[in-house]
Simulated assay, not measured.
Amino acid sequence: MKKFGYLLLGGVAVIVLLSNLAPMVALAISLLIMYFAYKGFIKTTSTFNKVVLAIIGVIALFASASNLPAILGFVALYVLYVIYKNWKKPAKTKLVEDDDPFTNFEKEWNDLKGNY
């Protein structure tokens, strides 16, 4: 049943990821343009270049803000990663000896006596 839940959640995550793929690429490109505009703004000494790079940076900032729903695509990508990592994990089971009160008593008694 756990695998079915993972499969269902993975299917939904794939659909969300594919529907947000184009905004994710546009967000990455606009953030890259904004980064290079900022780096150029810091390095230049010319006032004209600073104004041009500031305008480019503001336009890239607005483009990034318009692609903010692409974060859902990154969340879906992370969900797919977590599902992939947990797919082969065995289910946690209790050990039979932990249920036995006498075994636990013997362990505690040996710890109190100093017999390890």
Results as ranks from 00 to 15, higher is better:
residue 70 A to K: 05
residue 107 K to F: 05
residue 115 N to Y: 13
residue 115 N to C: 00
residue 74 F to D: 00
residue 99 D to E: 12
residue 107 K to W: 01
residue 81 Y to I: 13
residue 14 V to H: 01
residue 16 V to C: 09
residue 31 L to E: 11
residue 6 Y to H: 03
residue 87 W to C: 08
residue 78 Y to A: 09
residue 10 G to I: 13
residue 65 A to H: 06
residue 102 F to I: 07
residue 64 S to Y: 08
residue 48 F to D: 04
residue 13 A to I: 03
residue 100 D to T: 01
residue 84 Y to D: 01
residue 23 P to C: 10
residue 41 F to E: 00
residue 99 D to I: 09
residue 66 S to A: 12
residue 59 I to E: 04
residue 80 L to A: 02
residue 52 V to Q: 02
residue 2 K to F: 07
residue 91 A to K: 11
residue 53 L to K: 08
residue 109 W to M: 11
residue 84 Y to V: 07
residue 76 A to L: 13
residue 108 E to K: 14
residue 29 I to S: 14
residue 96 V to T: 10
residue 19 S to K: 14
residue 84 Y to K: 06
residue 44 T to N: 10
residue 89 K to G: 00
residue 70 A to Q: 05
residue 88 K to A: 10
residue 106 E to W: 07
residue 70 A to P: 04
residue 64 S to P: 11
residue 9 L to E: 01
residue 7 L to E: 06
residue 96 V to W: 11
residue 113 K to S: 06
residue 38 Y to Q: 02
residue 98 D to K: 04
residue 27 L to H: 09
residue 50 K to L: 06
residue 32 L to T: 11
residue 13 A to L: 08
residue 83 I to E: 01
residue 43 K to S: 14
residue 48 F to L: 08
residue 16 V to H: 03
residue 104 N to K: 14
residue 35 Y to V: 07
residue 110 N to F: 11
residue 90 P to I: 04
residue 57 G to R: 08
residue 19 S to D: 05
residue 69 P to E: 02
residue 19 S to C: 14
residue 68 L to F: 15
residue 110 N to S: 03
residue 24 M to P: 00
residue 73 G to W: 05
residue 106 E to P: 00
residue 84 Y to H: 10
residue 109 W to D: 07
residue 114 G to Y: 01
residue 101 P to A: 07
residue 51 V to R: 15
residue 47 T to P: 03
residue 70 A to Y: 11
residue 67 N to E: 13
residue 109 W to Q: 08
residue 101 P to G: 04
residue 46 S to V: 02
residue 42 I to K: 15
residue 77 L to T: 01
residue 15 I to P: 03
residue 49 N to Q: 15
residue 72 L to A: 15
residue 88 K to S: 15
residue 10 G to K: 08
residue 114 G to V: 02
residue 79 V to P: 01
residue 96 V to A: 14
residue 34 M to L: 12
residue 116 Y to V: 04
residue 20 N to P: 00
residue 70 A to M: 12
residue 113 K to R: 12
residue 72 L to D: 08
residue 69 P to W: 07
residue 49 N to V: 03
residue 110 N to D: 08
residue 38 Y to T: 10
residue 87 W to T: 03
residue 47 T to Q: 15
residue 40 G to W: 12
residue 34 M to G: 13
residue 56 I to Y: 01
residue 63 A to C: 12
residue 68 L to V: 04
residue 47 T to N: 15
residue 3 K to F: 02
residue 39 K to W: 05
residue 43 K to I: 05
residue 23 P to D: 06
residue 88 K to I: 00
residue 36 F to Q: 05
residue 85 K to C: 02
residue 99 D to M: 12
residue 53 L to A: 07
residue 10 G to T: 09
residue 31 L to M: 15
residue 3 K to S: 11
residue 35 Y to E: 02
residue 39 K to H: 04
residue 37 A to E: 09
residue 116 Y to D: 02
residue 50 K to G: 10
residue 49 N to S: 14
residue 58 V to M: 10
residue 78 Y to H: 07
residue 76 A to H: 09
residue 42 I to G: 00
residue 70 A to T: 01
residue 13 A to E: 04
residue 27 L to W: 09
residue 107 K to M: 05
residue 33 I to M: 10
residue 56 I to R: 01
residue 5 G to R: 13
